[in-house]
């Protein structure tokens, strides 16, 4: 199950290593680009955490909340799915200051991407919760469990397993979307690459490294979610 992504990972790192060692010129760019990669990772991790929290809250509000809360959740999901992530970034970064709210770029980046991916995630959560067999709800009613309790102890743990693969996709989407934050002055991987490119014009080396780093990071996410999936599926033995 996990062998394939591991193999891909190995090949990617091997190729990268080969490239780096065979072109001496690659080496000088590595430290700078890795600094950028660290920022990219930071935004990805922060964004993913925010996205999961928002997705869970929005999905619960949309499914079980009182009417005003439901509208709020629907509005959030539609606005953040229906507009471009770049525009959302710009809006938080350039428009909010007009209303006296000044956020530092990193906060803007994590907030915008987290909210954006969270909106997609909300639908993932909703779908997974709906996919839990009706009989599980009925059994909880028959055991006189209040709805919040059955949701927390019975339904969500089962929905969680079904959520992992689509969340893996969303995490990768988020990783790739972090390239946009270079446009709001954050020195992430892409920003660093552009900066170096402008001073050295070594386009081939620089953007090859960047490509490989993004790929390696996304493979890492894939391996992570696969592992989690196998682990979770084992714990939650499926059946009726």
């Amino acid at each position: 199950m996990q062998l394939r992504p591991l193999a891909v990972c190995a090949i990617v790192f091997f190729t990268a290593g080969l490239a780096v060692s065979s072109f001496a010129g690659f080496r000088e760019f590595i430290p700078g680009l890795l600094q950028g990669a660290a920022v990219t990772i930071q935004i990805t991790v922060g964004g993913c955490i925010l996205a999961m929290v928002m997705a869970l809250i929005a999905a619960m509000a949309k499914m079980y909340g009182p009417l005003p809360l439901r509208w709020l959740a629907v509005a959030y999901i539609e606005v953040f799915r229906g507009t471009s992530a770049l525009v959302q970034l710009f809006w938080l970064f350039f428009v909010l200051p007009h209303f006296g709210i000044l956020l530092d770029p990193l906060t803007v980046a994590i907030t915008a991407l987290g909210l954006n991916v969270g909106a997609y995630g909300a639908e993932v959560v909703r779908g997974a919760v709906n996919a839990v067999p009706r009989g599980q709800w009925e059994a909880s009613v028959a055991l006189n469990m209040p709805r919040a309790l059955s949701l927390r102890r019975i339904i969500l743990p089962q929905a969680f397993v079904a959520m992992i693969p689509p969340w893996g996709n969303l995490f990768i989407e988020l990783l790739k979307a972090t390239a946009l934050v270079s446009l709001i002055t954050i020195s992430d991987l892409t920003f660093k690459a552009q900066q170096m490119n402008q001073t050295t014009f070594r386009t081939v080396e620089i953007f090859t490294i960047v490509l490989v780093v993004y790929l390696a990071l996304s493979v890492l996410i894939t391996v992570g979610t696969r592992t989690l999936e196998t682990f979770a599926a084992r714990g939650i033995a499926r059946g009726r």
């Binding site: 909880s140 499926r238 009726r240």
Partner: peptide, 25 residues
């Protein structure tokens, strides 16, 4: 109530299935 399709909680052992509601309800 006991159902046609059992509706046991698949993520809990037989023991935990029987303990869940007595503890929390």
């Amino acid at each position: 109530m006991v159902f046609q399709h059992f509706n046991l909680f698949p993520h809990m052992s037989a023991m935990k299935n029987c303990m869940e509601a007595p503890i929390h309800v």
